[in-house]
């Protein structure tokens, strides 16, 4: 049991840091209906992983820069286009294709690529934990400063504009924060599954919360519960941790809403 706990220590810290991030950004994604945009950033970021491997730079750095680029691109698309869905899908697919092609072209040994798509929370490096701490702090500052503005914007965009709030700036900044959160979860949950984790706990939490802050806190708690439950399921049956976490989340979702 002691050994198991040692193995788990980084994954428990990662779970805690991720839950904190979900609490801060998940409800915001939900109330703004940003899930599709976030999914596009997450999948598209695979391009950054591919480029980083090809050019031999740090994958975390490559993915971060690429995800930030995608955040700006998507911000631009959502300002300009009346029906942005097509272009959002294009960013999603092109990003992934860039990733696949550059990894194909990269010389020499290729590390386990599935690890970036599906993550492996049992093997989160210390550097990534520090990156997660950094993103959590940025998210905290972002939400603490802009909470009232973000809520006003989500509730009534026209009225927020009328009060002089910088709608474009807030929208872009939110996408940047989503991009950083996506990158911080590459190692633990992976680019593909992360969206489920960022969507479902806030969705459940919203139904049971009286206030927005309440829904943030509850999102974090639910995320922590599903992650730790998923970890133990994964350990017990020796199956993939990310998939266990997501499946457990789905079961919880069905359990809560089956009536």
């Amino acid at each position: 049991m002691i050994e198991a706990l040692e193995l788990f220590s980084n994954s428990l810290i990662a779970s805690l840091l991720l839950s904190f991030a979900v609490a801060l950004i998940g409800p915001l994604m939900l109330i703004n209906r940003y899930n599709y945009l976030a999914a596009s950033i997450a999948h598209g970021s695979y391009g950054g992983v591919g480029l980083a491997i090809y050019f031999g730079i740090s994958i975390l750095l490559g993915a971060t820069l690429f995800a930030l680029f995608l955040a700006f691109l998507l911000a631009l698309i959502t300002f300009k286009e009346k029906y942005p869905e097509i272009l959002i899908s294009l960013v999603w697919a092109v990003g992934m294709s860039i990733g696949i092609i550059f990894i194909d072209l990269a010389p020499g040994y290729k590390s386990d690529l599935l690890a970036y798509l599906f993550g492996d929370i049992l093997l989160v490096p210390n550097l990534d934990l520090w990156f997660m701490v950094g993103v959590d702090l940025l998210l905290l500052a972002f939400v603490a400063l802009y909470k009232n503005h973000l809520l006003a914007l989500a509730y009534d965009r026209e009225f927020a504009t009328l009060r002089g709030l910088d709608v474009k700036f807030l929208h872009t900044l939110t996408l940047i924060m989503i991009a950083l959160t996506v990158v911080m979860s590459i190692r633990s949950i992976g680019l593909i599954l992360v969206i489920a984790l960022f969507s479902i706990p806030p969705y459940i939490a919203e139904k049971f919360s009286r206030s927005y802050v309440g829904s943030m806190v509850l999102s974090g708690i639910i995320t922590l519960i599903v992650m730790i439950a998923g970890l133990f399921i994964s350990y017990t049956f020796n199956i993939s941790a990310s998939a266990s976490i997501i499946l457990f989340t789905a079961v919880l979702f069905l359990g809560v809403f089956k009536r």
Binding site: L165, R210, S211, Y212
Partner: peptide
């Protein structure tokens, strides 16, 4: 669907950039 309280909505009228 937004979990907003009445007072939060009214106070939005006092927001500034």
């Amino acid at each position: 669907e937004l979990p907003l309280l009445v007072k939060e909505v009214i106070l939005q009228g006092r927001l500034e950039r």
